[in-house]
């Protein structure tokens, strides 16, 4: 699905990303973790075409993304950012409908099928009752849910999440990630998510990629990646590692 080969990025003298290579298989959910400045967000920006790599290639479904227009890329990739949608006075329905944009030509208006898709997604995400509310009257968590609905309507093959839970309370953190998980399972979507919270990463991802100083340090299951030695090395911290009583995965206590 996603193949990254020897991708690097520097900004003037500063090396943001050293030659990074990895791939993500179809329908997988992979978590990107690592300390601040590890290059996780840079990587997401490169894959979403917001910035261009200084070298290397990024392929989605076997195609180099540089060959695609912004619109074409948006047909394949949806992105959920930590800021989500701005609190702009536009209705939930209209905001979600914007997700259809990459599938429409410049002069084409939204048709029946597009509207129907929006209705379905509003139903699925539990936003049906909010449809006429303006974004600026919603809470951050609700807006993030609208952002997910918009991303779903986009019908992507790959979903990128850049710390989508940063500003949310624990209720909404679970809510947002559960929604993504349901969606992924229903449509065998491929997901790559940057998460700061290692506990959430261990719970929601099939696999974790640990980054530090612009390089990949380790890739594997949460079991393999979250260890006392790794936390010490990369985060310079020594929290307690315990087992989740129900899920049997490593969780950390600060």
């Amino acid at each position: 699905m996603l193949t990254i080969s020897n991708v690097y990025k520097h900004l003037e003298r500063k090396q943001l990303l050293n030659e990074v290579s990895f791939n993500v298989g179809n329908g997988r959910c992979v978590g990107l973790i690592g300390p601040n400045g590890a290059g996780k967000s840079t990587l997401v920006k490169l894959i979403s075409g917001l910035e261009e790599p200084s070298g290397g290639t990024i392929k989605i479904m076997g195609k180099d993304i540089r060959q695609w227009s912004v619109k074409k890329l948006a047909q394949k990739v949806s992105v959920l950012t930590q800021d989500g949608l701005s609190p702009y006075p536009i209705s939930v329905f209209d905001a979600v409908l914007m997700g259809r944009y990459p599938h429409l030509s410049f002069f084409q208006r939204e048709g029946k099928r597009d509207i129907q898709r929006v209705e379905e997604v509003l139903e699925f995400t539990g936003l049906a009752d909010f449809r006429d509310q303006m974004l600026d009257t919603l809470s951050g968590g609700e807006r993030q849910r609208v952002a997910i609905a918009k991303a779903m309507v986009q019908e992507p093959e790959l979903l990128l999440l850049d710390e989508p839970t940063t500003y949310l309370d624990i209720g909404y953190q679970m809510n947002v990630l559960n929604l993504v998980k349901d969606w992924q399972e229903r449509e065998s979507l491929t997901v790559l998510m940057v998460l700061h919270d290692l506990n959430l990463a261990a719970q929601y991802c099939d696999e974790l990629i640990l980054m530090d100083e612009g390089s990949i340090v380790k890739r594997g299951t949460s079991e393999e990646v979250i260890s006392a030695q790794m936390l010490k090395e990369v985060y310079h911290a020594s929290p307690e590692i315990v087992r989740h009583p129900k899920l049997n995965i490593p969780q950390i206590l600060l």
Binding site: S48, G49, L50, V70, K71, L73, A74, Q75, V77, S78, V79, T81, D83, L85, S86, M98, G99, Y101, P102, K150, Q154
Partner: peptide, 8 residues
Amino acid sequence: EIAHHSGV
């Protein structure tokens, strides 16, 4: 950024 991610 949202506009870019939406294909604009």
